[in-house]
Lab assay of single mutants.
Amino acid sequence: TTVKVNGTKYKFDTPEEAQKFAKKAADKYNLKVVVDGDDLRVE
């Protein structure tokens, strides 16, 4: 599972880890998590 934040992709072994990271990033930058198929985007 990958998470894309500000054009940078981060790869995670499990969707749970990816979800946690995406949520933290979204909170930090005051953005929202967008599900894109198997991957997540923070925008």
Rank of each mutant, 00 (worst) to 15 (best):
T1G: 04
T1M: 09
T1W: 14
T1N: 07
T1H: 10
T1R: 08
T1P: 05
T1Y: 15
T1S: 07
T1V: 13
T1I: 12
T2A: 06
T2Q: 05
T2R: 03
T2H: 06
T2C: 13
V3C: 01
V3M: 00
V3E: 01
V3Y: 00
V3N: 01
V3P: 00
V3F: 00
V3I: 03
V3W: 00
V3G: 00
V3H: 01
K4R: 13
K4G: 04
K4D: 12
K4N: 13
K4E: 13
K4L: 15
K4Q: 13
K4S: 15
K4C: 14
K4Y: 15
K4W: 15
V5I: 14
V5P: 00
V5L: 13
V5K: 00
V5F: 15
V5Y: 09
V5G: 01
V5S: 02
V5W: 14
N6T: 03
N6M: 14
N6H: 12
N6R: 09
N6Q: 08
N6K: 07
N6V: 06
N6W: 13
N6Y: 11
N6C: 15
N6I: 06
N6P: 01
N6F: 15
G7Q: 06
G7T: 04
G7E: 05
G7W: 03
G7A: 04
G7N: 07
G7C: 11
G7I: 02
G7R: 05
G7D: 06
G7L: 04
T8P: 00
T8W: 12
T8M: 13
T8H: 13
K9M: 14
K9I: 15
K9G: 07
K9H: 12
K9N: 11
K9E: 14
K9F: 14
K9S: 14
K9L: 15
K9Y: 14
K9D: 11
Y10R: 02
Y10L: 04
Y10W: 07
Y10K: 01
Y10H: 05
Y10G: 00
Y10V: 04
K11S: 12
K11A: 09
K11D: 08
K11C: 11
K11T: 14
K11E: 12
K11V: 14
K11M: 12
K11F: 14
K11Q: 12
K11N: 11
F12D: 00
F12W: 01
F12E: 01
F12A: 00
F12V: 00
F12N: 00
F12K: 01
F12I: 01
F12M: 01
F12C: 08
D13Y: 06
D13L: 08
D13C: 10
D13F: 06
D13N: 12
D13G: 10
D13P: 10
T14S: 10
T14M: 03
T14V: 03
T14K: 04
T14F: 04
T14A: 03
T14P: 00
T14N: 09
T14C: 04
T14L: 04
T14W: 02
T14R: 04
P15I: 10
P15E: 07
P15K: 11
P15N: 07
P15L: 13
P15Q: 08
P15W: 14
E16Y: 07
E16G: 08
E16N: 06
E16K: 06
E16H: 07
E16A: 10
E16W: 07
E16P: 02
E16I: 07
E16R: 06
E16L: 08
E17M: 08
E17P: 00
E17L: 08
E17W: 01
E17N: 06
E17T: 04
E17G: 05
E17Q: 11
E17F: 02
E17I: 05
A18E: 01
A18D: 00
A18V: 00
A18R: 00
A18G: 02
A18L: 01
A18H: 00
A18K: 00
A18Y: 00
Q19V: 13
Q19C: 12
Q19I: 15
Q19P: 00
Q19R: 12
Q19D: 07
Q19M: 15
Q19K: 12
Q19T: 08
Q19Y: 15
Q19E: 11
Q19L: 15
Q19S: 08
Q19W: 15
K20S: 13
K20W: 10
K20M: 13
K20H: 11
K20I: 13
K20R: 13
K20N: 12
K20L: 13
K20P: 00
K20F: 09
K20T: 12
F21L: 02
F21H: 03
F21N: 01
F21R: 00
F21K: 01
F21V: 02
F21G: 01
F21W: 07
A22M: 02
A22N: 00
A22P: 01
A22L: 04
A22K: 00
A22W: 02
A22Y: 02
A22V: 03
A22S: 02
A22E: 02
K23Q: 14
K23Y: 11
K23S: 08
K23E: 12
K23V: 08
K23P: 01
K23D: 10
K23T: 09
K23A: 11
K24Q: 14
K24V: 11
K24D: 15
K24A: 15
K24S: 13
K24P: 01
K24H: 13
A25F: 15
A25K: 08
A25S: 07
A25C: 13
A25T: 14
A25I: 15
A25V: 15
A25D: 03
A26H: 02
A26T: 03
A26G: 05
A26N: 02
A26L: 03
A26V: 03
A26M: 03
A26E: 05
A26I: 03
A26Q: 04
A26Y: 02
A26C: 08
D27R: 09
D27E: 14
D27N: 08
D27Q: 12
D27S: 10
D27P: 02
D27F: 08
D27W: 09
K28A: 11
K28N: 07
K28E: 12
K28Y: 14
K28M: 13
K28Q: 11
K28T: 08
K28P: 03
K28G: 07
Y29I: 04
Y29N: 07
Y29E: 06
Y29H: 10
Y29A: 07
Y29R: 05
Y29C: 07
Y29L: 14
Y29Q: 07
N30K: 09
N30H: 11
N30E: 07
N30D: 10
N30W: 06
N30I: 04
N30G: 15
N30M: 07
N30R: 07
N30F: 07
N30P: 04
L31M: 14
L31I: 08
L31R: 04
L31E: 05
L31S: 13
L31Y: 10
L31D: 05
L31P: 03
L31N: 05
L31W: 12
L31F: 09
L31V: 14
L31K: 07
L31A: 14
K32G: 07
K32P: 09
K32T: 14
K32C: 11
K32F: 10
K32V: 14
K32W: 08
K32E: 10
K32H: 12
K32D: 09
K32Q: 13
V33F: 05
V33E: 02
V33C: 08
V33W: 05
V33Y: 04
V33H: 01
V33R: 00
V33S: 01
V34F: 13
V34Q: 08
V34N: 05
V34P: 01
V34A: 06
V35A: 10
V35Q: 11
V35D: 06
V35S: 08
V35H: 09
V35R: 10
V35T: 09
D36M: 07
D36H: 06
D36C: 12
D36L: 06
D36A: 06
D36G: 03
D36P: 01
G37E: 05
G37I: 04
G37W: 04
G37P: 03
G37D: 06
G37T: 05
G37S: 04
D38H: 10
D38F: 10
D38T: 11
D38N: 12
D38K: 10
D38G: 10
D38V: 09
D38E: 12
D38M: 11
D38I: 08
D39Y: 11
D39Q: 10
D39G: 13
D39N: 10
D39H: 10
D39R: 04
D39L: 14
D39M: 15
D39V: 15
D39C: 15
D39S: 12
L40F: 09
L40E: 02
L40S: 02
L40P: 03
L40C: 05
L40V: 05
L40K: 02
L40W: 08
L40R: 03
L40Q: 02
R41A: 10
R41N: 09
R41E: 06
R41F: 09
R41M: 10
R41W: 09
R41K: 13
R41L: 15
V42A: 04
V42R: 02
V42N: 02
V42Y: 04
V42M: 06
V42F: 06
V42C: 12
V42D: 03
V42G: 02
V42S: 02
V42Q: 03
E43S: 09
E43Q: 09
E43T: 09
E43N: 05
E43W: 06
E43F: 08
E43Y: 09
E43I: 11
E43V: 12
E43R: 04
